[in-house]
Design a protein around this nucleic acid. Structure first.
Lengths: 151, 151
DNA sequence: TTCCTTGCAAACGATTTGCATTGGA
DNA sequence: TCCAATGCAAATCGTTTGCAAGGAA
């Protein structure tokens, strides 16, 4: 399996980040990180609980997700039905965007070329300053119908 | 009041759209449309209920919002805390994007130039087809700090 | 020991729904 | 008239929290 090295490295990066804040990297927390990094897109608490993080009780799961969001290890999104979805933060996996299926709600990660990314940055900066905002980041979501739902 | 003309036209467009589906445009529903079109960005049910749509009971409000979302009159978003926000659909107000304040959660509408919009369309199409999706639309959200929160 | 973390169950808040009543075409 | 629309209250569901027990430094 090719992922083992990267997996180990992510755990190490997370451990370091947590230790800076004097937060323990316990086995339950490691389980959550592993579960999320195996996914191909943002996952809900329910998906994690009924799958690879099934051993972690819901309350602990939510506490961990929330802690990781606060710490900047995870990024929280709000999917099609208002249910929170979590994925590893950009600094752990690289900046990317999402395609969302309007029919079934599936979300997939999608990488962006450097040239497209700089166009996006330019547009985002221009829009943000138009409104007087100090721009920090941008989120592009492509809405469409996924291959499965599209007949 | 300068908005009366446009306001009337939106009500007429909504009425027509609903009548196509044999759905009545009642006074409660008109109140909701009026409340939403007065806003400068997507609004939550609570905001509408405690403000310009205060006369509409919550259950009816939610039913109306949901009906309008299904009918394509409103577009539903999920803001910073997973609370649903609604705004008039693009065909009623024109395509636009949002700037979101990561500090206070405020959301403002923001227009995009035609040239930026076609760049966005090109990027979105390319990303979507990369994943095998039939692309329908795109959402760009600029994250930053609003003037009020930024000292 | 001391404080962080966990796990259960109860609490919460946004949204939905059952059902009897009202109102418009 | 007749069925869609309404309004109240109760139910749902994702998520949060109080509190006592477990564990690592």
């Amino acid at each position: 399996m090719a992922g083992t090295g990267a997996s180990t490295e992510i755990h190490e990066l997370v451990r370091r980040k947590l230790s800076e804040a004097a937060i323990r990297y316990t086995s339950g927390r490691r389980t959550v990180v592993t579960a999320i990094q195996m996914a191909s897109g943002p996952r809900t608490a329910a998906e994690l609980a009924s799958g690879p993080a099934g051993s972690v009780p819901v309350s602990s799961l939510y506490r961990t997700l929330s802690l990781f969001d606060d710490t900047g290890i995870l990024k929280k999104h709000h999917g099609s039905h208002g249910i929170a979805r979590y994925e590893l933060a950009d600094w752990l996996t690289g900046h990317h965007h999402h395609v969302v299926c309007v029919a079934c709600g599936a979300i997939e990660d999608i990488g962006v070329s450097d040239s497209a990314e700089s166009e996006l940055n330019a547009i985002a900066s221009s829009l943000g300053s138009q409104a007087g905002f100090r721009v920090l980041d941008h989120v592009l979501e492509v809405e469409g119908v996924c291959p499965d739902c599209d007949r």
